[in-house]
Computed example of a mutant assay.
Amino acid sequence: MHDSLDALNLQLERLHTHPFYAGRLPRSVASTAEFAERVPLMSRAQFVAEMGKPGYGAFAPQVPPVRVHLTPMGSALVPILHSAADLRAIEAACGQHLDACGIGPGDVCMVTFGYHLFVAGLFYQSQMEARGVACIPHGPGETERAAQVARQCGVTVLAGNPTHALKLIEAGCPVPRVFFAGGEPFSGNEALYARVRAAMPGTLLVDSYSLSECLPVARTFPGGAGVHIFDELLYAEVIDPDTGTPLPDGERGELVLTHLKKDLQPLVRYRTGDLTVLERTASVHGRTVSLPRVVFGRVDSMVKIKGVKVYPSELRSVLLGVAGATGAYRLVVGSKAHGGDHLTLLVEGAPGDREAIAERFKRQTLIHADAIEAVEKLEGSALVQDNRKGAHQEKETT
């Protein structure tokens, strides 16, 4: 939909004198490959450190903010600043999505996301109102009352946590025409997605991915697969978390985002810490950059097994919705007698379908687990136990 190189060059021209980026950015690049080569990556730690300085350091607002969200990052509550122009840009991008979903004046949206610190509640309310949609800012909990309010007001659009949405439907909430899911893995959790689909058989189900500091990132567009990037707001890359090298489309790695328009706290080649796969697609409502599996883990203490990089937290998606599994797991890596790695996946609980786990594991990691064993209780928090000679014994997520 948008020319990435032109948009990047406009942003580089705007930011080359910005207090945080002065001396770090070229004024223009001839290609996206040159952009990745010449522009340094930025970490969340850098962002948090700058925002912790008096007046927000080099991110001191150059125009007055009109909205300040506070989001937890480690032990800090970090202010996320939006100018009036920032909010209008977000509303315009989301407005295109609402148009694609057939949402507009006459619809009634109930928002059951939280409004206290958690950004989603106000985010959905403001974009709906900007498009002329009546909005009920209910917030989470109080299921019976929420269902009654939804019936009373004729709710046609619902935004909230999928698990809570199921309880609302059971309590008599009208089945919405469109459901916006968030707050927990949705399209990547096959069992939960199937339960929601059964409860809302004719509903357009929308999954989304956002960060407080990059809002929004991507959403399900009707007729598409996975979630498609809001490319008028963000330029997306995937890198090897270990080396920082850009990866080809279709390879799993760490998502890196660059703001293309944001006035306040503009982030350039910002490491999200999230694992994903990026693909180019045929146009879907003008969108051609997709995260087909949304995100499925965090960059953490990578371990190389059978020559392949495995990120321990990505395995959470393997166990989502598996009956009998608690969700806890551990990789145990040893050496085979005649060379090579032997890999055992320990799963806490009593999972019934180990073949399904094995298939999911191979699809996710691209390697085969030599054994999948169930254990009643896993002691400790280590996700990896590496018994190979000379290896560190345990690795935990960070």
Rank of each mutant, 00 (worst) to 15 (best):
Q385K: 15
L117S: 11
A85K: 12
A191C: 09
L25V: 07
V384K: 05
P61W: 15
P241R: 04
Y124P: 02
S4M: 15
L247R: 08
V318H: 07
A236C: 01
P40N: 10
T163V: 12
Y124S: 04
A325C: 12
L166H: 03
R269E: 01
S83V: 06
K377N: 09
G339Y: 04
Y209P: 00
S335Q: 11
D341S: 09
A391C: 02
P201C: 06
A147Q: 05
T326D: 07
S317N: 14
V111H: 02
T276N: 11
D341L: 09
A36D: 08
E129Q: 10
G188K: 13
V48A: 15
E355L: 14
T276E: 10
T17H: 14
R330K: 11
R24N: 10
F186D: 05
G154T: 07
Y270A: 03
R27Y: 04
S4F: 14
G339L: 04
V322G: 07
S317F: 14
A391V: 07
D263Y: 01
Q127S: 12
Y124V: 04
P19K: 08
A130K: 05
P72H: 09
K389P: 03
A225R: 15
M51S: 06
G95E: 00
V155Q: 02
E170C: 02
E50V: 09
D274V: 08
P266I: 02
R145F: 09
L215Y: 10
L77D: 13
T143L: 08
P216I: 00
A171Q: 05
F118V: 08
T71F: 01
L77F: 12
G253E: 03
K395D: 10
H82A: 01
Q148W: 05
E355A: 15
D263V: 02
H392L: 14
D242P: 05
G102A: 00
Q152D: 14
P40W: 11
A337V: 14
L331T: 02
P266E: 00
R195F: 01
H18I: 06
D207F: 01
L211Y: 05
R363I: 13
A100R: 11
V48P: 13
L204H: 10
G132S: 01
Q46V: 07
F35D: 06
E142N: 15
Q148Y: 08
A374N: 12
P64G: 02
A369I: 03
R316G: 13
P241S: 03
G114L: 06
C101R: 04
A356T: 13
G23W: 03
G141P: 11
G349C: 07
L366M: 14
K261L: 14
S126P: 05
M302V: 15
T203D: 00
G339Q: 08
M110K: 01
A325N: 07
V299S: 03
L319H: 07
R360A: 12
V289W: 09
V284N: 11
A194G: 12
S381N: 13
R131A: 11
L166R: 03
S43P: 06
V333P: 03
V108A: 06
V63W: 02
P292Y: 11
T220S: 15
P241H: 00
A150G: 02
L10N: 13
Q125W: 00
P19C: 10
V48M: 12
A100C: 12
L278H: 11
L215T: 13
A89K: 01
L70D: 10
E37A: 15
A358K: 14
L122Q: 12
G352E: 14
F35V: 07
P351S: 11
A382F: 03
G183Y: 00
K395V: 13
